[in-house]
Amino acid sequence: MKEDLAMQVKSALWKKKISQKKLAELVGISSAYLSDIIRGRKDGPKAQEHIKHIRKILDI
């Protein structure tokens, strides 16, 4: 799942021409925290809520 999310996010960012930093701003979290979520280092309940928000923003 971790690799799948990372690939989906990277692909969507590229297609939408959005930087990871901009995505973090849109979600309301730091770039470092976003990176940890995408890489699967953070996967608690709060991170899962952020993942839902990320998926909504990127349409994935």
Rank of each mutant, 00 (worst) to 15 (best):
V9T: 10
G40Q: 06
S19G: 13
A47S: 15
L58T: 05
G40A: 09
L5K: 01
I37H: 03
E25F: 00
A32W: 02
S30K: 00
I18W: 05
V27C: 06
I57K: 00
K52Q: 11
D43K: 15
R55G: 04
L58K: 03
S35Q: 06
E49Q: 13
I38W: 01
S11P: 01
D59Q: 13
Q48G: 08
R55A: 04
I54Y: 06
R41P: 00
I18E: 09
K56S: 10
E49H: 08
A12C: 04
D36G: 01
K17N: 14
L58S: 06
A32E: 10
L23C: 03
Q20G: 15
S31F: 10
L5H: 04
I57R: 02
D43T: 14
S31K: 14
K16P: 01
L58G: 06
P45D: 11
K2T: 10
Q20R: 15
K2P: 01
G40D: 08
S31Q: 14
S35M: 00
I51C: 02
D4L: 14
S35D: 06
G28V: 03
K15P: 02
D59F: 10
Y33P: 04
L58D: 09
Y33D: 02
A6F: 06
R41H: 15
K21F: 00
S11Y: 15
L34H: 10
I60L: 14
K15Q: 14
G44R: 12
E3C: 02
K10F: 09
I37F: 00
S35L: 04
Q20I: 06
S30L: 00
K56F: 07
L5Q: 04
M7L: 14
I18M: 15
A6L: 10
D59A: 12
Q8S: 10
L13K: 05
S19H: 02
E49N: 10
K2F: 02
D43Q: 15
S31P: 09
E3R: 12
S19Q: 08
G28L: 07
L23S: 08
P45N: 11
K16I: 00
W14T: 15
K42N: 11
D36L: 08
L5I: 09
E49T: 10
D59S: 13
L34S: 07
S35K: 05
R55C: 11
G28S: 09
Q20K: 15
L23H: 11
I57V: 09
Q48R: 15
L34E: 01
L13D: 06
I18T: 07
M1Q: 11
D4A: 13
L26T: 07
R41V: 00
I18G: 05
A6D: 12
D4S: 12
E49G: 10
V9F: 04
I60K: 07
L13H: 09
K52E: 12
L13F: 05
R55M: 10
V9E: 09
A32Y: 08
K15N: 13
A12Q: 07
I18Y: 12
K2S: 07
K2C: 03
L58Q: 06
M7T: 13
I54H: 03
L58I: 02
K46T: 11
H53L: 12
K17C: 08
K2V: 07
K21L: 07
G44D: 15
S11R: 13
K21T: 11
Q20S: 15
D59W: 05
L13M: 02
I38S: 03
K22A: 15
I60G: 05
K21S: 11
V9Q: 07
D4F: 10
